[in-house]
Design a protein around this nucleic acid. Structure first.
Lengths: 228, 228
DNA sequence: TTATGTGAATCCATTCACAGCT
DNA sequence: AGCTGTGAATGGATTCACATAA
C-alpha cells in the first residue's frame, strides 16, 4: 500500500491531456527561438508567440517540474530538453504509413518528419501496381505483409492514409500486428480496442467547423440590429 | 430590453465549442447510415458508432433543439438536416488552396471535398514554374493575384498548404484579401487578428502526442510492479 | 523589481439519473 | 416499456491573484 518513492515515474505522470496537446506547440516555438539565438524567454513572451495565455503556459510547464528562474524566465535549451523528455522524444519512433496515394506520398516526403525523432520505416499499400515500387527511397510492401513489416522494422506508430473504405480493415491489421498508436487520415470513425490510441486528422470536419463559425459571424450583425 | 422573439437566431446560438467539433462526426455517421437505408436510430446506437457516450450525444443534440422522438429515437434524415443546418452547410462555401505541392495536390484531388458543400474555387502558388499550369482541372494563380482571385471567386475559406517559411506571409495575404477562416497545414503558429478563425492540422504535433501516450504505456507496467 | 509557481476561484464539459413523452 | 431531454452533480481545465524566489 505504501509507495517506496514518488520518483520521476509518479511525478512525471499526471500531465493533463490538454497540456500534452500544447507541449508540441511550445516545443516548436522554442526550437525556432533557439534558431534565432534566443537563450532565455519569459512566460509572457513565449505564451504570446504560442497563442496562449501566460498563466496557462506556466501552469502547463509546472506539470513538468520547476524549470524556470523567478525574475528571469526560462532557459530555451533547458525547457526544450524537458518538454522533449516529457513527450518521449528522446528515443526515435518508427512510423509505418499505409496508403501511398497522393496523401501518403505527401506524408512520406514531408521533411521535418524525421526531424523530431520520427522515422518512416515502412510503406504499405493494397494496390498491386504500386507494391514493389519505391517512394521517397522506400520500397512499398503489400498489405498482406504488414504484420511481418511491422515486426521487422519495429514500427510503433501506424498512419492510415487510405481511402475511407479500407481504413477500418487497415486499422484492424495494424492492431493485429501489434501497433497501438494510430494516426488516421481517412474520414471514418475507427472502432478499435480501448487500449489503442487513435488520433484523427479530418479535413472535412475542420472545414465544417470553420463553416460553422463563418456562419455565426454572418448572424452576429443581425443580433446587434435587434438591440438597436 | 425585451426581445421580440427568441427565434432560431437566439436559440441556434449557444452551441458549445466542444459540441461543434463533434457534429461533423455525427453527420458523417448519419450519412453512412442513410446509405445503408437506416431510417431511425437511438442515441445508444448512434453514440456507439460515433465513439461517444449516449449521454453526451443527447446533450450535444439538445443544443440544436428537440428533434428526437421519446421511446423511438431519431430520424436519420431529420437529424442530418438539422446538423447540416447548424453547421451552416446549406450554402456552399468557396475554398482557396494556397500551395500546390504534394499536399496541396492531395487536398485538391480529395473527392468528397466538394461532397459536403465545399468547393475548391481557386489554387494559388508562389512558384513561377507551376503558376499557369492546371491541377485537377483548376488553373494555378500567382501569389500576387491572391487578392483578386479571392474577390473574383468569393472564396470564404483559405487553406494554407505551403512550406513553414511562407505560411505567416500567406496568412496575412489571405486576411488582407478578406478571408477570415483559415485552415493551416504548415507547422507554424500563425499570428493573425483575433477575429480570424484559424484551425491547424499538424502532423508533427499529432505524432508527438501519440509518442507521449506510447511512452506512458511503456511506464505503466513499471508502476504496477512497484505495488507487487 | 521582476517573473515564476501555485492555491483558490471560476468556467466549461461530461456524466448521472430521472422526469416526461410516445 | 422505451428512449429522449435535461436539471443536478461531478470532474477538468482555465484564469486569477499573490506568495515566493532570484
Amino acid at each position: 500500500m505504501s509507495l517506496s518513492r514518488p520518483s520521476r515515474l509518479a511525478s512525471a505522470r499526471a500531465i493533463p491531456e490538454a497540456t500534452v496537446t500544447r507541449l508540441p506547440v511550445y516545443l516548436r516555438v522554442l526550437k525556432s527561438m533557439a534558431d534565432s539565438a534566443v537563450t532565455t524567454v519569459s512566460s509572457d513572451d513565449l505564451a504570446g508567440t504560442c497563442g496562449v495565455s501566460p498563466a496557462m503556459l506556466r501552469k502547463d510547464l509546472s506539470h513538468l517540474g520547476s524549470y524556470g528562474t523567478r525574475g528571469v524566465g526560462y532557459s530555451v535549451a533547458l525547457l526544450t530538453y524537458h518538454i522533449s523528455q516529457a513527450l518521449g522524444l528522446t528515443q526515435p519512433w518508427g512510423v509505418v504509413i499505409v496508403g501511398v496515394g497522393k496523401l501518403g506520398q505527401a506524408l512520406t516526403a514531408y521533411r521535418g518528419f524525421g526531424t523530431r525523432g520520427f522515422d518512416v520505416v515502412a510503406l504499405v499499400d493494397a494496390d498491386p501496381s504500386v507494391v514493389g515500387t519505391t517512394v521517397s527511397g522506400l520500397p512499398v510492401h503489400g498489405l498482406a505483409d504488414l504484420g511481418r513489416v511491422v515486426a521487422d522494422t519495429g514500427a510503433q506508430i501506424g498512419v492510415i492514409a487510405t481511402p475511407a473504405e479500407a481504413a477500418q480493415w487497415v486499422g484492424e491489421l495494424l492492431v493485429g500486428a501489434g501497433v497501438r498508436s494510430i494516426l488516421n487520415f481517412a474520414p471514418v470513425v475507427l472502432v478499435l480496442p480501448d487500449d489503442v490510441e487513435v488520433r484523427k486528422v479530418d479535413l472535412a470536419s475542420e472545414l465544417q467547423i470553420l463553416a460553422f463559425h463563418e456562419q455565426q459571424r454572418a448572424d452576429e450583425p443581425l443580433r446587434e440590429a435587434v438591440h438597436a
